[in-house]
């Protein structure tokens, strides 16, 4: 009597399974093709990363960090962290992890920014997307592994797919927020001079939303890094796999090393992308010393007894 009545049960699992089954029977060719292309891309990115001599990568990361954060000490610090990852013996694994993050974030940005723009332009698009994005972020990340596994099998492609789904909301959200927060007076002024929708986007909205979008990319990157570790559960090699193996073997030392390597990688990526996001987009002054202008109406002819 007091228990929830059986007849009120809404079986959602069944239809979802059926839909999945339908997709698998009818669209498997498509997903096979996507999987093959995705794997090619992932492997070439990984090979590129591994192919670069480690010290070259360390130097490049150091220089980029210096430029992004603005202090050479920070650049040096980031380089040292990257070297530490190597000293744990996880250089190759770190590069594998990094390649998945890079590909997932690249796709997230390429897809997410346009979606964010649509969301900022249209209130109805926003109304539809907002609950979906909320859901995507609240859903336990493991859940994404199941459809990814079914669509693409085991390996790094489904891991990238799951990472993409899990990590894309921030870049969409912050693009939307950034564009919506552009002062309406600035938009109005541009419109008054004959800017159309694209002029507005190119000249006003995207440039002014840039800091917000960069913060979104930063968050997306960090979420991708977190997810890529979980992706090891569906066969993604890399640092996550090392952690997983350590758990299975109850090997505390190894697990700690691999965990620390992930943390260092995360710090490096976070500080660099955050640095780009925080950097002043607008310099206050550029060259050329000004002459005084504010006072040039002081000399009004015909009023000799001008008392200021």
């Amino acid at each position: 009597m007091l228990e929830f009545p059986d007849w009120l049960r809404l079986p959602l699992a069944g239809p979802v399974d059926q839909a999945m089954a339908w997709i698998l029977t009818n669209l498997s060719g498509l997903f096979d093709w996507i999987g093959a292309v995705g794997l090619r891309i992932l492997i070439s990115v990984e090979q590129a990363l591994v192919g670069v001599p480690w010290f070259v990568l360390v130097i490049v990361v150091g220089l980029v960090a210096w430029r992004a954060i603005g202090k050479w000490t920070s650049g040096l610090g980031m380089a040292v962290l990257l070297i530490l990852v190597g000293t744990f013996g996880y250089w190759a694994e770190a590069m594998t992890t990094l390649s998945v993050v890079i590909v997932a974030v690249a796709i997230a940005v390429a897809v997410g920014i346009p979606i964010g723009i649509l969301m900022a332009w249209s209130d109805s698009v926003k109304r539809v997307l907002r609950p979906i994005l909320d859901g995507m972020q609240t859903m336990p990340s493991f859940v994404y592994l199941i459809p990814a596994l079914m669509l693409f099998g085991l390996g790094r492609v489904p891991a990238t797919f799951a990472t993409l789904i899990y990590a894309i909301p921030p870049v969409i959200r912050l693009t939307d927020v950034g564009i919506r927060e552009v002062p309406s007076a600035t938009i109005e002024a541009a419109r008054a001079f004959g800017a159309n929708r694209w002029d507005l986007l190119r000249d006003v909205q995207l440039p002014l939303a840039r800091p917000a979008i960069l913060v979104g990319i930063n968050q997306t990157t960090m979420m991708a890094l977190a997810m890529v570790v979980i992706g090891s559960m569906i066969g993604n090699r890399g640092l996550g796999m090392e952690v997983l193996l350590a758990i299975n073997r109850v090997d505390i030392g190894k697990g700690f090393e691999a965990g620390l390597a992930i943390v260092f990688l995360a710090i490096v990526i976070d500080r660099i992308s955050n640095g780009f996001a925080r950097r002043r987009t607008v310099p206050v002054v550029s060259a050329a010393a000004p002459t005084e202008t504010e006072d040039d109406a002081e000399d009004i002819p015909g009023e000799p007894e001008h008392v200021a």
Partner: peptide, 21 residues
């Protein structure tokens, strides 16, 4: 309308409406 705004008429705003970048 866009052509009209671009060629025939201009507006000055209280809040300036300049592009900061």
């Amino acid at each position: 309308l866009l052509e009209f705004r671009r060629r025939s008429i201009s507006m000055v705003f209280q809040s300036y409406g300049l592009l900061p970048h």
